[in-house]
Nucleic acid binder design. Structure first.
Lengths: 340, 340
DNA sequence: CTGAAAGCGCTTACAG
DNA sequence: CTGAAAGCGCTTACAG
């Protein structure tokens, strides 16, 4: 009981059990060779004293700390919190523990977050928001931590990116609107500049171009419910009112639906078809029944943790894992049958 | 560059700067005395090498690790994720970092979580889900970590509980329904047995008893949207159909509103008044406009972190901090004017 | 299988 | 203000 915070250490246990400190260490190291009798004595003493291996000290001698940093902005958002939850669970299964670091998405705050991760010698940092430049990524590498970039576009040597087929989903969204008989499709976008968002939008626009159909397009604020509300208000106030709209985010789509219904007295999908992206829980609620693309949240988490466990560290490779967004058909898009 | 994971250490910096390791340490210790010139040399060398103080090692010598464990189940729920987000932010402001540990709320998993926190020598554990028994709490204390119990009822010596005036809110909910002219008030509860939930319900029931009004009461499942849907379905199928209902959770309230509207064709609040609790973002959405009690999420986070910073550790005291839930009046309860 | 010893990267009295 | 030294709590060859 002689350390800085008065906890119980391996030495206390060793004394109580009448063995060496090494024997205590071995007892708590899977696979180490300890005689059953020794082991039993150690375990008994440890239990009696309330001993727990100090992972901080262990992290100092071993190559791994067991810590993984999750770098994220706006954690309270439905999609974000689902992803963090899945990541935390998967990490736990793999014997790691998640440390969460908030950012505001600015370069400075992402840098601060990463430096924090380095200081704690986390085994890896999973970036959900913002984007470190290559110099920062190199700094991480040099300090022995691996980088997982989720839904980020630019490649960084020594890291893995996990991406969806956003562009393709955007195209499919357009096709669905066409098949639903929408004559005036619209796109509601935000100023949040992440590439996964941009890809969804580009895909939609490209498909429209190919089909020779003009699209009504409004852009505003963040990817929030409130933005959806306001965007719909603008779109639906136009003389050439759209009859179908694709939102790169479910939160925006919920806002669009509510504005259409409650502020314009429109019916969804009869008067306006709406397609979202993410498949947050609210998308399945009776008030929305939103047709949307589901992000494979658990698949993303599993792929991240798997890569960390199995991919050999390679400071020159920039890995890429592509996952698919699955269409979830609910009631917010007209079917040809229900059609106007 | 000689450690287990090949990172850069204070020794490397000391060599490069031509000073002692102690000088490097002092440069990164606020308030330590270092000559400006020495400091400058160290900083330059550190920058060039990409050095970061190893917090794991620092945590070994100092009394604090800077780590705080957040122990939580169902992180992806709106209220939970808001609280975790606020806690993380406040902790960060205080120079700490949050480690999140998932539980399934069972005693075994809470114990596992706490032992994990002890192993990492976190400065504190904030318990949002489940409840450690006194023996476990003692184990934490003995290992130098403080306990913050949020919305938990039983007191634990050596910890602080942060509680709301749940009982009172329950009473107020009943009064509101009465004033709205509801003749057949109902209570929709879940089987989730936390005391804050129970207190809200008890308060409601007690007020009804005092007023001599019988209350229709159904109980089911978890505190989820789905439970709300099902509970409303049962309640609204009864011959003595309620005209007002209090839900101890906004998620349940959203389910109740959706069932009333979309499955029974009822109007809210004209046919059914609904009151929730939490004030999750969705409560403010146009589809719900839910009248509810707001949990002071940031206040809870601030109080937690403040206590950690300022309350002197006392292994015999069981502190209690009471916060108020603020009524947020929106449109889901009839006003006497709109009344039937 | 076991213990003594060295080492991981820090910090902190202690002399100077 | 500065450095040598001891110590925090572990793990891991190294002998035995």
């Amino acid at each position: 009981m002689a350390n800085a915070r008065g906890g119980v250490s391996a030495r206390d246990v060793a004394e109580a059990a009448g063995v060496s400190r090494a024997a205590v260490s071995r007892t708590f190291t899977p696979g180490a060779s300890v005689a059953p009798a020794t082991r039993a004595k150690v375990l008994a003493a440890a239990e009696a004293l309330g001993y727990h291996v100090n992972y901080l000290a262990r992290g100092l001698t071993r190559a791994e700390s067991g810590l993984v940093a999750l770098i994220v902005a706006e954690l309270a958002t439905p999609f974000r919190s689902q992803l963090v939850s899945a990541l935390t669970a998967r990490l736990q299964e793999a014997g790691k523990v998640a440390m969460i670091i908030n950012t505001d998405r600015s370069d400075a705050s992402v840098e601060r977050a990463l430096r924090q991760a380095i200081a704690y010698r986390t085994d890896a940092a999973v970036v959900l928001s913002g984007m470190p430049d290559q110099a920062l990524a190199d700094l991480c590498l040099r300090n022995g931590l691996r980088l997982v970039l989720i839904n980020r576009d630019e490649e960084r040597v020594g890291s893995v990116r996990i991406r969806l087929d956003d562009r393709d989903a955007g195209r499919r969204a357009f096709e669905m609107l066409r098949q639903a008989g929408c004559a005036r499709p619209a796109l509601a976008t935000s100023f949040a500049g992440t590439t996964s968002l941009a890809d969804r939008e580009q895909g939609f626009l490209a498909a429209a171009r190919d089909a020779g159909v003009p699209v009504l397009h409004e852009t505003l604020g963040a990817t929030s419910y409130e933005t959806g509300l306001e965007l719909a208000t603008r779109l639906l106030s136009r003389p050439d009112r759209p009859d179908g709209v694709f939102c790169p985010t479910d939160l925006m789509a919920c806002g669009v639906i509510d504005a259409a219904r409650h502020r314009f007295g429109l019916r969804v999908p009869e008067d306006l078809s709406v397609i979202g992206f993410d498949d947050i829980p609210q998308a399945g609620w009776d008030a929305y029944r939103l047709t949307t693309f589901a992000q494979p949240v658990d698949g993303i988490a599993a792929a991240s943790v798997d890569w960390l466990r199995t991919a050999p560290p390679d400071p020159f490779a920039a890995d890429l894992i592509r996952l698919s967004a699955r269409l979830v058909w609910r009631g917010s898009v007209r079917t040809p049958r229900t059609g106007a």
